[in-house]
């Protein structure tokens, strides 16, 4: 993956469309998106249900391929990659945090965090060191041996963040990361993300429907009907 330098955007979408079905039942989840995200940005995507914000995140996260359009990731076209190529891209450059945490049950926090490193082919000792480092970045190194069922929702989501961090990604993609949490825990999670963004310079793209949470980001993208309606700095950043 070539690096086109800090001037060109890390993520560059141009006229991205994602269309499900055909003819009368056609659904335009993304209907011509143009979006540049620079290294080190903390971007929140908001919008009503069905506005295509999750689809946008899936396309940015290379979980999904756009029907048409161009997607330059770090200057390389990735819109037409095969399934396995996208898997490799995710493995090496992207980290995911989901609303439902999606940790493996009956598996220790440490092992959950190690999971992406296994697919990176890292050796056991190094993997453990990296995983513990990631857990310490979310303040959970003392919970490494615990199963998800022994952790609170907030802690589980922090383990999930640690898992996304463990691969040392260029971008972290968060899909409603606070959707299952109360306000206090939500704020904790957002503070963790904000710290990672400010201190480690991690690029974060987050989908949320809570304005309070979006406020932690620097930039807010408002989507309606598969299009970007507004793209502006958050009040805090401004």
């Amino acid at each position: 993956m070539s690096d086109a330098g800090s001037q060109s955007p890390l993520i560059s979408l141009s006229d991205i469309r994602r269309i499900y079905g055909q003819g009368a039942t056609e659904v335009r989840a993304l209907d011509g998106i143009d979006l540049d995200i620079n290294e080190g940005e903390f971007v929140a995507i908001m919008g009503p249900s069905g506005s295509g914000k999750s689809t946008a995140l899936n396309v940015i996260g290379c979980l999904d391929s756009p029907t048409s359009g161009h997607y330059l990731f770090s200057g390389t076209e990735v819109a037409n990659l095969t399934r396995d190529q996208r898997a490799l891209l995710r493995r090496h450059y992207l980290g995911f945090v989901f609303q439902g945490y999606n940790l493996l049950s009956r598996t220790s926090a440490l092992h959950n965090v190690e999971l992406p490193l296994i697919y990176k082919g890292m050796r056991s000792a190094e993997r453990k060191r990296e995983a513990l480092l990631a857990l310490s970045m979310v303040g959970l190194e003392h919970r490494a041996k615990h199963d998800p069922s022994e952790l609170s929702g907030g802690q589980q989501q922090r383990v999930a963040i640690a898992r996304a961090l463990a691969g040392n990604p260029r971008v972290m993609l968060a899909d409603e990361p606070t959707g299952n949490l109360d306000t206090k825990r939500s704020v904790e999670i957002m503070e963790v993300l904000q710290r990672l963004n400010k201190e480690a310079g991690l690029t974060i793209v987050m989908v949320t429907h809570e304005a309070d949470m979006a406020a932690f980001a620097d930039r807010l993208i408002w989507m309606v009907d598969g299009k970007i309606e507004r793209d502006e700095p958050t009040r805090k950043a401004a």
């Binding site: 399934r83 396995d84 490799l88 995710r90 980290g95 999606n102 940790l103 999971l115 697919y119």
Partner: peptide
């Protein structure tokens, strides 16, 4: 299925 989804999302290839 979810476990498989997680593995795929974090970069497991189909063959793995």
């Amino acid at each position: 299925t979810r476990e498989i989804g997680i593995r795929l999302a974090i970069g497991a290839q189909a063959s793995q």
